[in-house]
C-alpha cells in the first residue's frame, strides 16, 4: 500500500458517499445515469470474485464489500424506491450500455493475463470500468446543467483513477517485477475520458459559476 493508492481508494469512497448523500438528501436521482450505476455494480461483482477465496487484508476485504454493497444499493434504490425512481431521467439515459458490456467481454477474452475464469472476468471488469462512465457523461451532456453533488460525484470518480495511475508509476519504480499494463492502459483511457468533464468542472469552479456542459 502506498499513499497514491490509499488516496485513490479514499477518493473513490468519497465519490460513493457523495452519490449516496445526493440520492438520500434530495430523494432524487436526477442527473444520475442508472446505466452507469449498473455497469459499476457489474464491475465490482466481476472484479471481486476472489473476495472469499483470497484474503489480502482486512482493509482490502472491507473496501470490496463496501463497493459491492453501495453499488447494488444505488441500483436497487434507483429502480425500486417509489420516490427516487420518479426522478430518474429515463428518456435522457438512453446510452446502449449493453454494447460496452459485450465489447469489454470480447476484449477480455482476447487480452488477459491468463486464460482462466477469474482472470478473464478480472480483465473484463478493468475494461468495463474504463467505459462505465460514458452513459453518465452522455446524460450530463444532454441534461446541460449539472447539480453540485452530481458534479462532485463524477469529479471524485474520475480523480480516483488518476491517483491509481500515480500508484502504478510508483510501484513500477519501487517493485522490480511489477507489471500491470492491462490496468495501466485501461486506467489511462478511463482518466482521459473524463478530460473534458474536468475542464468544464475547473472552469465552473474558477468562475464560481454553475457547471454548464455544452449541448
Amino acid at each position: 500500500m502506498n499513499i497514491f493508492r490509499f488516496a485513490g481508494d479514499m477518493t473513490h469512497l468519497i465519490s460513493i458517499l457523495v452519490l449516496l448523500l445526493k440520492i438520500y438528501a434530495t430523494k432524487s436521482c436526477s442527473g444520475i445515469s442508472l446505466k452507469t450505476q449498473e455497469l459499476y455494480a457489474l464491475v465490482f461483482l466481476t472484479r471481486y470474485l476472489d473476495l472469499f477465496t483470497d484474503f489480502i487484508s482486512v482493509y482490502n476485504t472491507i473496501m470490496k464489500l463496501v463497493f459491492i454493497a453501495s453499488s447494488l444499493a444505488v441500483v436497487c434504490c434507483m429502480r425500486m424506491h417509489r420516490v427516487v425512481r420518479r426522478s430518474y431521467d429515463k428518456d435522457l439515459d438512453t446510452f446502449r450500455h449493453y454494447f460496452l458490456i459485450l465489447a469489454s467481454f470480447v476484449l477480455a477474452l482476447l487480452v488477459n493475463e491468463k486464460f482462466t475464469f477469474q482472470e478473464i472476468f478480472w480483465a473484463f471488469s478493468i475494461y468495463l470500468e474504463a467505459l462505465a462512465i460514458l452513459p453518465q457523461l452522455v446524460l450530463l451532456q444532454r441534461s446541460g446543467n449539472v447539480d453540485n453533488l452530481t458534479g462532485q460525484y463524477v469529479f471524485f470518480l474520475g480523480a480516483y483513477r488518476a491517483f491509481y495511475i500515480l500508484n502504478w508509476i510508483y510501484r513500477y519504480f519501487t517493485e522490480q517485477h511489477f507489471s500491470r499494463w492491462i490496468a495501466c492502459v485501461s486506467g489511462l483511457v478511463q482518466t482521459v475520458l473524463y478530460a473534458d468533464f474536468f475542464y468544464y468542472y475547473f472552469i465552473s469552479w474558477k468562475n464560481n459559476a454553475k457547471m454548464q456542459l455544452p449541448a
Binding site: 476472489d50 483470497d54 489480502i56 487484508s57 482490502n60 473496501m63 463497493f67 493475463e113 490496468a183
Partner: peptide, 10 residues
C-alpha cells in the same frame, strides 16, 4: 497471497 501479489489492488 501476500501484499504485492497479483490482484492486491481494489
Amino acid at each position: 497471497p501476500p501484499e504485492g501479489s497479483y490482484h492486491d489492488e481494489l
